[in-house]
Amino acid sequence: MNQRENHAKGGPADRLSAPAGAFHLMGRFGDQLVPAIFLIALVITLSLVSPNFLSVGNFLDIARVVSIIGIMAVGMTIVILTGGIDLSVGSTFALASVVAASLIPGSFSDAPRILAFVLPVPFAILAGLLVGAAVGFINGFIIAKSRVEPFIVTLATMAFVRGLTYLFTGGFPTIFRPMPPLFEWFGQGYVLGLPTPTIFFALVVLIGVWITRRTTFGRSIYAIGGNEEASRLSGIKVQSIKIRAYTLMGALAALSGIILASRVGAAQPTAGLTYELDVIAGVVIGGTSLLGGRGSIMSTVLGVFILGVISNGLNIAGVPTYYQYVVKGLLLISAVGFDSYLRKMQRI
């Protein structure tokens, strides 16, 4: 026991070791267990409190609303697993959406056009994704090469990219006259009765799970987050893995931004403001550690749904917005606090 405690205090390696003692249940599915129970308890409570909560329509609605944050949260999970963080996602979200929107036939803005051409919808979307990936690549490149803390690098790019977004749009929203049907489908359509944003979210989650569980890249992410120096010494190309993680994050932020632009029928330069905090909150509530090396995509999905269900439930229950802030903040603290408490108990 004593040895275990020393081990636990001694380094990040313990995060991968199996827990023991009374918290046996937390073994294989430990990371998901607490948020899952929390989510189920939440759904049951809300169903009892409000009869309108428990309906297929409402659940589909929740699934659609959380997709925007959820898609980014998958990328953020990967970044956080490496021990990093990305504060620039909200700005990347906006830049990619305005660039993609401006390239779509029928787009209109009160500001002079920067790009004087349009592309077929798929290519415009692709261009937006590339812009996002480029921002992510730059983040990753600076973080990997300069060894400056990711918090600072992405704080700087957050301001910088937001500035670029304002420059690109002149501060005006880009709207569509009319919106091409394919682009409309991108954010507002349905596939087999499911909203397209949810389909995209599900696909991103599947790919994310596959990457983190089945690929060398995924295992390297956990290794770097667990112990960067050890990973480097065991032959993992730390810099390249980090750059790939941030590039993926950028592309996912872009995807999310473009979906929202289609969903609301406009790309706003102010879109995604403070989304980084919602995204990080989703990841952390799921149980992923900000120290890196511990967590999973599925935990994040639970975390994102917890936030979404809370928002939805409070809205249905008619709780005023300001009280919702208080409840949400307290739930974030208590969910993560409970998790920290359990972990502390485990170690003793």
């Binding site: 905090l277 952390v284 900000l290 903040g329 974030l332 603290i333």
Partner: peptide
């Protein structure tokens, strides 16, 4: 033993 980032993020909203 919570991460300061998370605690103060929650507190920011509260």
């Amino acid at each position: 033993g919570m991460a300061p980032f998370v605690v103060t993020l929650g507190m920011m909203t509260v």
